[in-house]
Amino acid sequence: MSSEWPLWEVFIRGQHGLNHRHVGSLHAPSAEMAIQNARDVYTRRNEGVSIWVVRSNDIAASAPSDKGPLFEPSNAKVYRHPTFFDIPDDVGHM
């Protein structure tokens, strides 16, 4: 009988209150064991305070071929960045 444990993606939130970050993946039979395995595999050096796991198969991802349509249009929206606006120095810090 061959029943490979499913693959899980692991997300860890570090000490400093930042977002959970993808750190890698591992195999586990269940979510409960995936969290335990993640604790043992990915926080050996005191890396985290919170763990998320999600089945790799359950992740929906954007297609590389969509890269242009998805991301290039935002290049043109320069007005979303603060440097777009010229404010005289006399106004002070803004």
């Binding site: 029943s3 444990w5 039979p29 269940s30």
Partner: peptide, 16 residues
Amino acid sequence: GAWVREGLMAHAEKRA
């Protein structure tokens, strides 16, 4: 280790 991997998988499937 085969029986361990299979045993834990079988349990997870029962639970699910």
